[in-house]
């Protein structure tokens, strides 16, 4: 087993849901929605920093860009990676290639494994967010674990290291499960694991000096092509009435509200 103590964080520039745009026909206007570093991946980076103090290795970030066209997205993608570098990542690797956008999780997971091989990175821990804010499907970490035949701990809200052992708390629907496994391992984290702060100006300035590698599909082997097709995406329009209840006094407003609650049939007699 490698004992270099290296950590890999998988980080994704995701479509920013807060900046959603709609086409006239109600379709999602992908081209005009910017990308940002997926929120929960920030928690993974923060956790990598904490674990690095114990493991004493390097933190690599690996990013597979899934939204194209790359020429147009490049700035957003690089910003997301820059944020990782500013927040403690030591070296960043990015796959950018229009032939795999829009990507799917099959392609992403196989490309991550291919990059680990190409750069000969043998991490003790691979960390990532439990899901990304655009697709929210939460499956890349499990795929990578299976491909590398490594133990997988999903939905971790707490991680402790004890020598070569990881002890983690998995946050499930009805209970918290404390589990233990040996390094190396793949772990996905929840937003509750820590509270990352935005990088400082000095951190951002330092980031540009750190090594970054951009690879293309032709630099890698064994990357599976996407199998899922995004046939359609519609902006969810839940039309609400947007009526303001007003009155001369709060008493009057309260009366009007009670009337509405009665009409809706939620007040018992």
């Amino acid at each position: 087993m490698s004992t270099l103590g290296d950590i890999v964080v998988l980080i994704k520039p995701a479509l920013n849901p807060e900046m959603i745009r709609s086409l006239p026909d109600g379709g999602v206007d992908f081209d005009n929605i910017p990308l940002k570093l997926s929120d929960i991946d920030r928690n993974a980076i923060e956790e990598a920093n904490r674990l690095k103090e114990l493991l004493k290795g390097k933190i690599y970030s690996i990013t597979i860009s899934t939204w194209g066209p790359i020429a147009k997205r490049d700035k957003d993608i690089k910003m997301a990676i820059q944020e990782g570098l500013a927040k403690g990542v030591d070296e960043a690797i990015l796959l950018e290639d229009d032939s795999i956008t829009p990507g799917d999780q099959i392609t992403t997971a196989s490309a991550i494994v291919s990059i680990l091989n190409k750069f000969n990175i043998k991490p003790d821990i691979i960390l990532t967010g439990e899901a990304t804010i655009d697709g929210f499907s939460g499956q890349v970490a499990g795929r990578v674990a299976a491909k590398l035949n490594l133990p997988y701990i999903s939905f971790a809200r707490k991680i402790d290291l004890n020598g070569n052992k990881v002890i983690a708390e998995r946050d499930l629907e009805d209970y918290v499960e404390v589990v233990e496994t040996q390094l190396p391992a793949v772990i996905s984290v929840t937003r509750e694991i820590n509270s990352p702060k935005p990088p400082t100006l000095i951190q951002i300035r330092m980031a540009s000096k750190k090594p970054q590698h951009v690879v293309k599909l032709s630099d890698l082997t064994n990357v599976a092509m996407p199998k899922k097709k995004l046939a359609e995406a519609k902006v969810l329009s839940v039309k609400r009435k947007q009526t303001m209840i007003e009155g001369k006094s709060l008493e009057e407003v309260a009366d009007k509200l009670i009337e509405i609650l009665e009409q809706e049939g939620v007040l018992k007699h």
Binding site: P17, V28, I33, I133, K228, L230, A231, E232, A233
Partner: peptide, 11 residues
């Protein structure tokens, strides 16, 4: 999709 702001159809 998109944190609940859209619905996607996949094939």
């Amino acid at each position: 999709f998109l944190s609940g702001r859209a619905i996607e159809t996949e094939e």
